[in-house]
Amino acid sequence: MSQSPEPGTLLRFTSAERWTHRTLGILMGVLLITAAVLYLPGASAVIGNRPLMRNAHVISGFLLPIPIIVACFFWAFRQDLRRLNRFSPNDWKWLRSRRNRGGNTPVGKFNAGQKLNSAFVLGSIIVLLVTGLVMYFNRFFPDDLRTGSTFVHDWLALLVAIVTAGHIWMAYGDATARKGMRTGSVPVEWAEQEHGQWANEVRS
């Protein structure tokens, strides 16, 4: 790999991957906040400004796939997509056993929870984008599909808000994981503890 990390640490995310995560995070944050203001009667009352919120929401929504598409031009990101896609027997074992989530089951670069989260987020982005496009270009669609799209967009957005809160909660509880996403590298000991299989792979 091109970047060589400090001694005692392993390179976990390249700067392209970190920037992808950062950009997606900011856009997702804008989307969830503006969605709340557009949606929740309480928030509408306090903040209002519907046209501004709507434009911010629509623009962020249209921009959302761009960081992912750009990231696909980077080899490290594509490698990680391959890892995230596949579920090894250890992933199932990790997922089934609450105790093993402490690290007794050596998993690869991503654990099963991270894999499920990334798949859910990608699926959500696709569905929210399509339903959002139907709602935005509503003149071209019959109102049955518009109502259906509104329904899907609303409920999936609620799930995304919950899952995103969970994602932030997990990150809040693991300073080293956050450092990995912020600086790109993690201590070897952490990697051995949390992603044993990956630690072996990188060192060999």
């Binding site: 490698q79 890892r83 579920f87 670069k109 798949a119 859910f120 792979e201």
Partner: peptide, 18 residues
């Protein structure tokens, strides 16, 4: 990568959601 083995669960989830 060596840990990219096993069932393509991620792809199934994405396609299922679509």
């Amino acid at each position: 990568p060596p840990d990219a083995t096993g069932a393509p669960v991620g792809r199934r989830i994405v396609l299922g959601m679509v």
